[in-house]
Design a protein around this nucleic acid. Sequence first.
DNA 1: AAAGCGTGGAA
DNA 2: TTTCCAAGCTT
Length: 359
Amino acid sequence: MTDAAPTARAPRLAAELLDWYDRHARAMPWRTGPAARADGVRPDPYRVWLSEIMLQQTTVAAVKPYFEAFTARWPTVSDLAAAADADVMAAWAGLGYYARARNLLKCARAVAETHEGIFPDSHDALLSLPGVGPYTAAAVSAIAFDRPETVVDGNVERVMARLHDEHTPLPAAKPILTEHARALTPPERPGDYAQAVMDLGATICTPRNPACGLCPWRTDCAAWAAGTAPELPKKAPKKVKPTRHGIAYLARRVDGAWLLETRPETGLLGGMLGWPGTDWFSSDAALPDDAPPIRAEWRTLSEEARHTFTHFHLRLTLRVALVPMDRAPCRGEFIPAPEFRPADLPTLMRKAFDLARPR
DNA sequence: AAAGCGTGGAA
DNA sequence: TTTCCAAGCTT
């Protein structure tokens, strides 16, 4: 009977969590309300997919305004597929992980062209789309189509590690935690269940100071019994971030136009607008050679732009110049003042602009 | 398979 | 100020 007991409790745990979810589900722009759900109304797969892409490694609070803006401007996947690349990248500016925006467009165009604008409902078909990995494929299949797929995001990893008091550090523990999650996924209301586990992790079973007293799974939780919940999941130690240095050139033409360039498709801030500049080098090296994009009288600002990326800190020296009308740049192109919106820039480049703009 | 890839809020 | 972290995917 060593196997029967833990297996038999799965339906009860799922039912208890769904009951909790029915009472505590948070309203979100991409969710269908309880009343509509009771009538069998499924959420729009396009909105589910869009929200899931935006939510990758990104907080709900950060996503909300972007989700509203995207769905207002591009109400269907076919609308998005027809959008200009630069418009989508500009609309994504500030949200981060810009490969998501590039893949978002690729995916929208794939759905529009090869699926006639209809999102596939199977995990495997979804998985083949650009920017859709195991988590997102399961999430869209479960939430939009109510298929019994198991979602495993950071929340679920944490909840499962605690429920089973699993001390193996991530990412090695991932297969174990995935299997635990799969064993709990119910055949009924899998879409609600998927969102319920993630909501539990986001609001009760939080990384720090978990609210175990409010948890519907408390009496079944091995980490609660052992007192180890706050220290789980274990994670591999992080590496220290090095600091890099570089130079950015902010040229303003006398008519107010700014000299910008679109960065290469791949790599950091790929496909985004940015100020021309040098590569960024590790701090022990001297500042790179001066390489201005246009002949002008360049002045170095006293303040650097500081920014931290996922794996390094950056200190960017800013050089500014006011250039006459009849002079051609060797890099980038001038964007007329009426067309230039600082909000279209990724955050690093916007920080640089805020320091360099005339005041 | 390990590393690359953003950002802002919380502690 | 620094660290940690949030509904991961790609190469």
